[in-house]
């Protein structure tokens, strides 16, 4: 019980510190551990938060498209666009080679909404579509105080539109890397054969050699598909470094 209290205390202090840093200007730091739904104002209940997070995480796992929701009090001196695109770029939402990230920013105090789309998303989530999502989905729900429902319906709409544009990350990785992987294995085998022939009976040496070679290969192959695999365990695996070119739209409610 007392331990729970202590944790709660530190969490509150942490939140206060966080808002203090936030007010000092600039954008919030990249969440660690990574999260797709970042509610810095506590507008959503824990259940709403985790169900949104789960929904976006599953979508990111299956399509590699990362939709991040950021809820802040205000965007400070900068406009919602500048604020949102800075978050998008600094956090690197979306995959590096696909630029398939999207940030939905909500400033609660100034009642602003902003969608910024990654370069790879611009074809499906055009500026006009972003505007329509804000005007016809988010705005009516938010005006009625149904924030979670608004975000839920809006993200569903985004997912529906973006689906089919990108495949899961692991798939495309496999297609490209199987041949070099085979080449490396063949080279290793050739090396081992040569080493075994030269060394004659020195089996121990060959074994060490093998360990030294195969170790990093296995490790690195695990690493390349790491964010897809790691995320199945629970949390979201992390942002991929996607780029943003200024697409999207904004509005207020």
């Amino acid at each position: 019980m007392s331990r729970k209290l202590i944790i709660y205390f530190f969490f509150t202090v942490y939140c206060f510190l966080f808002t203090a840093i936030l007010n000092a200007q600039d954008i919030p730091a990249k969440p660690n551990p990574p999260r797709l739904v970042n509610d810095f104002v506590m507008k959503l209940s824990p259940t709403e938060l985790s169900s949104l997070e789960q929904k976006l995480k599953v979508y990111a796992d299956t399509t590699s498209t990362q939709i991040a929701i950021v809820i802040v009090k205000t965007t400070g001196d900068s406009g919602p666009y500048d604020y949102a695109i800075k978050i998008a770029k600094d956090w690197g939402v979306g995959q590096k080679d696909k630029n398939n990230g999207l940030v939905l920013l909500w400033a609660t105090e100034t009642r602003k909404l902003r969608i910024v789309t990654g370069r790879g998303m611009e074809a499906t989530i055009t500026d006009a579509v972003s505007k329509r999502i804000i005007n016809t989905i988010l705005k009516p729900y938010f005006q009625g105080g149904q924030f979670y429902q608004g975000l839920d319906v809006a993200t569903t709409e985004i997912m529906k539109r973006a689906s089919g544009e990108f495949g899961a990350d692991a798939q495309s990785d496999d297609d490209g890397s199987i041949i070099p992987f085979l080449v490396i294995i063949i080279i290793v085998i050739v090396f081992l054969v040569i080493a075994a022939k030269r060394g004659g009976g020195r089996n121990g040496g060959a074994g060490g050699f093998m360990g030294g070679w195969l170790g990093p290969i296995i490790f690195s192959s695990g690493g390349s598909s790491g964010w897809g695999g790691g995320s199945s365990g629970g949390g979201f695996g992390g942002f991929g470094g996607g780029d943003f070119g200024g697409g999207g739209a904004g509005g207020d409610y």
């Binding site: 666009y81 972003s130 200024g246 697409g247 999207g248």
Partner: peptide, 13 residues
């Protein structure tokens, strides 16, 4: 919104 988006893209580029 499209016009605003292009202005943002111009600025970015």
């Amino acid at each position: 919104s499209q016009l605003e988006g292009t202005e943002n893209r111009i600025k970015e580029e």
